[in-house]
Simulated scan of single mutants.
Amino acid sequence: MTIYSLYIYDRHCACVYYQDWHRTKGPRPAAMEGGILPAVSPAVYPRHEEPTFESASTYSSPRNTLTSSSGIVVAINDDAPRTPLPQQTQTSTSQPSALSSILTFDEESKLVYGVVLSLRNMVKKLSGKDEQFVNYKTSTYKMHLYETLSGYKFVMLTDPNADSLRFVLRQIYSGPFLEYVVRNPLMSMDSREHGIDNEYFRMSTDRMIRGLTIFQ
């Protein structure tokens, strides 16, 4: 048994945080910047091609930028997201069909949220308001849900044979989330602008997940 990934959604239905561990196929970066908030995860933010510095006159930056032939680079992109982006790796030309079959992260996060919303509404209609949707499983994975009073939804995907991990999601909320996100005066909670850009929260969550007995 193992843990695959963690999603956090806010009350605006936006994915504000993502982290994965044992996914065999990682998500593709979002198709465009408008499809995902900055700082959700460096692995899924849209990647751009490196600019070519053929001539210094073609770069419209207020700072002086030397050409690559000088061996010195002094330009800094002030508009880049705060979370550093990973280096783009070259993929083999023999795998275009495999890559195209993987959803982009903005599409994947919408599908995950759609499943949560649909099952939650179905449970309330069939079982009444006192019942809550906490998890469901298929032949390949199990989805766990913990929803806070403020509207945040913590969603985790694990091995289908895993026990309920709702208590783990509650611990993430009551521990690292409250400590490094909610009570952090430097942290903006307006998810309309960016995701949870806090490395302490990411590292603390990663340490908590790796310490579980289910994590292999």
Rank of each mutant, 00 (worst) to 15 (best):
R192I: 00
R82L: 04
Q90Y: 11
A56H: 10
L157S: 09
E50V: 12
T52K: 11
D206I: 03
G26V: 12
T138P: 02
T148H: 05
S101P: 01
E179K: 15
T91E: 12
V182I: 15
T104P: 06
L119N: 13
P86E: 03
R82H: 09
V74C: 10
C13A: 11
M189R: 05
M32R: 15
E54Q: 08
E108R: 13
S150M: 09
G128Q: 05
V182E: 09
G211I: 00
R192H: 02
V16Q: 04
V116T: 11
D20R: 03
E199D: 14
Y7F: 15
P84Q: 01
V155A: 06
G71N: 07
S94A: 12
G151V: 12
T205V: 15
M203I: 06
V40Y: 07
S100V: 10
P27N: 02
A98R: 12
V134F: 05
A39V: 01
L126G: 00
K142P: 00
Y152G: 07
E54V: 07
D79C: 04
I214M: 08
D206Y: 03
H12M: 09
G128T: 12
P160Q: 10
Q87L: 12
M156Y: 02
V74E: 14
D20W: 11
N64W: 10
M189Y: 03
G151T: 11
K153H: 04
S97G: 04
H12Y: 11
P84K: 01
W21S: 07
S68W: 08
L186W: 06
Y7T: 03
L119T: 14
I102F: 10
I196Y: 06
V134R: 14
S41W: 10
P84C: 01
Y180L: 10
T140N: 14
E33K: 15
D163T: 11
D20G: 11
Y141H: 12
Y180K: 11
S191C: 12
G195H: 00
